[in-house]
Design a protein around this nucleic acid. Structure first.
Lengths: 196, 196
DNA sequence: TACAAACGTTAACAAAAGATAATAAAAACA
DNA sequence: TGTTTTTATTATCTTTTGTTAACGTTTGTA
């Protein structure tokens, strides 16, 4: 495994808390590469065994399926952690599917292994807490936006915030799902916004 | 402090994980009663020092303020933990206000103290992780509903799910906020639903 | 390269939601 | 008890969204 790739993962972990080499080496035996072609699924609805991963290259989306319709609700880019998180922590089958939007390279490790680190080392347990808090904060932010902003305001926020990546690299009909409107409606919002 | 009230808190904690008497006694010195009258605020926007609490009696709401408008996004009932969670974990001023909808009795303890327990005991650190995961799951569930269901479907879900408490005990215009529509619109949804 | 699939825009119409105001009922409270 | 205040409904009008379909463009791939 390339040092550079491992460092991407270690750096991502250390955005939450510093870890020693010994702590790091508790994780490394379980790390492996995964490659996905565009359109390939990383985690499928109903799937049980759960991996965590980090995106080295490419981008991905996750979606729920309802009445045969796919509803995309999140995107993953380089250096993002990726997992069917709620399936992993509840040990239930995944309710969502994660799919590569471009060819992707990932590093992966099993949630089971991470969970065993929670028992072995308080530092990893703390990492688990900080990750959960981080995820919760992102969801709260998102939910507040859905409740308090109009679709147009949410679109404008997407253009400004630290989320331009999404607008630049993701097909618009997926973004429409993400904002909670139909693709047709997002197209109209865009033309409305442009006139101003 | 009454044994019965302390037991409510300990039971709530033990829904996440069992704790020994010694672990419990790390928390107890910091616990105190709080009483609020209807309309009184427990945490105010901009406030910094953060308490965690558990509702013994009564119910509460929390809301964001935007352009002078209050947007209610959550309700708390008996035996629910209550805090301005994201303010506590980020040590930033609270962006939301928590207000008593009825006269309330709570038990409270400081987040600072809880945080010190994270350092003192792996069990408490794990408690912190499990609580964060629980909050994240609730938010994900909520967000998926906002993205995938119509306002009418969200209202119907509220009637069925394990959330009847909200419909029974909370004024409708707050519920409208919670569902992401205006009070007028919720009233129309109700009359539409009844005709069926 | 040629064909098919995916994507984005626009149009037309129906359904729903927002805004505002009027009214009535219920709850708080002095 | 009587009087505010809060709460819910209804009506009207405007704006926005959903739905379906058509069209052209881009992209992927055989």
């Amino acid at each position: 495994m390339e040092e550079k790739d491992l460092n991407v993962l270690r750096t991502a972990i250390q955005r939450f808390l510093p870890i020693t080499d010994e702590e790091w080496e508790l994780l490394t035996p379980d790390i492996r590469y995964r490659s996905l072609e565009r359109g390939e699924k990383w985690i499928d609805e109903g799937q049980r065994e759960q991996d965590f991963g980090i995106v080295l290259e490419g981008n991905m989306r996750h979606y729920y399926t309802r009445d045969g319709e796919e509803k995309t609700t999140y995107f993953y880019f380089e250096h993002h952690f990726i997992s069917s998180y709620f399936s992993a922590i509840t040990a239930k089958p995944s309710r969502l599917t994660i799919e590569a939007l471009t060819d992707c390279r990932l590093l992966a490790f099993s949630y089971k292994h991470l969970q065993s680190l929670y028992d072995q080392s308080p530092k990893w347990e703390r990492f688990g807490r900080l990750v959960a808090e981080y995820i919760a904060m992102g969801l709260e932010e998102r939910m507040a936006g859905l409740l308090m902003l109009s679709p147009e305001e949410r679109y404008l926020e997407l253009l400004e915030g630290n989320k331009q990546k999404i607008v630049e690299r993701i097909p618009q009909h997926y973004i429409a799902n993400y904002l909670g409107v139909t693709p047709v409606s997002l197209s109209r919002i865009r033309s409305r916004v442009q006139k101003k």
